[in-house]
């Protein structure tokens, strides 16, 4: 079963009374263990697409299935639950709670799943280990470098064992070395754990690392390029 399946999905907004068609009929499938990059210029609709894939939003028309559930028919609470269960977010600006330790930041998704504190901490520690930050669980984001912060964010995305990691410009705020490391971790998780990774980026060399490149323009998918299987 595909993790995410979009069929002729559109999304329009009303801004100051004017209707804006951000997506005008997009169909795509994210398979289990997929590694895809969504690229496109700003205003192309790639952010809107990412919000839809991440169940932060519902399509105006068309069908969007995430984890087998029709996003368009779910209410806010069900969407929240679906996000919590199936999607892990990695944001460009990390989005960590500043006054909270790495461990508690990572454990946050489990809070909304009703997991007990001791169990949460154990699993958060494991997730931090997986991104090589096992030694910094008690540190706060302000005491960490950008690369470390993004690794904490990846651990947070990972802790709930989602089937899809959605990474929105994950290297956008990082230098090349840290960016490489973050990408390496995402790829390792993709390979070792079989979690599907969807990158949203405008950096061609980052996108080029994915197995598939989905090019979005003017609210439509312009092209899908399959990378040759590495031998």
């Amino acid at each position: 079963m595909a993790e995410i399946e979009a069929v002729e999905v559109t999304r329009s907004y009303r801004m100051d009374g004017v209707s804006v068609d951000a997506l005008r009929g997009v169909s795509l499938t994210i398979e289990e263990g997929d590694y895809a990059a969504i690229i496109g210029p700003s205003g192309s609709g790639k952010s809107t697409l990412m919000h839809l894939l991440g169940c932060l939003d519902r399509p105006t028309t068309g069908t969007l299935l995430v984890g087998g559930r029709d996003v368009g028919t779910l209410d806010d609470s069900e969407l929240a639950e679906l996000r919590n269960q199936t999607i892990g977010f990695v944001f460009q600006s990390f989005q960590l709670l500043a006054r909270t330790t790495a461990l508690d930041n990572v454990a946050l998704p489990l809070v909304y799943r009703g997991v007990r504190r001791a169990e949460r901490r154990k699993r958060a520690a494991e997730a931090l280990d997986a991104v090589n930050l096992g030694h910094r669980i008690g540190h706060k984001p302000t005491q960490m470098s950008g690369g470390e912060q993004q690794r904490v964010a990846i651990a947070r995305a990972l802790v709930g064992e989602p089937s899809v990691l959605l990474a929105d410009e994950p290297t956008g705020n990082l230098d090349t070395v840290n960016g490489d490391e973050v990408m390496g971790i995402l790829e390792r998780l993709n390979k070792e754990r079989g979690v599907a990774v969807v990158l949203v980026t405008h950096e061609a060399d980052i996108a080029a690392r994915a197995r598939r490149i989905i090019r979005v323009r003017d609210g439509l998918i312009e092209a899908v390029a399959e990378a040759p299987e590495p031998s």
């Binding site: 929240a80 919590n84 269960q85 989005q95 909304y112």
Partner: peptide, 10 residues
Amino acid sequence: LRKALGARQR
């Protein structure tokens, strides 16, 4: 962020 991570309205 909390909502993205699964916090419901309530």
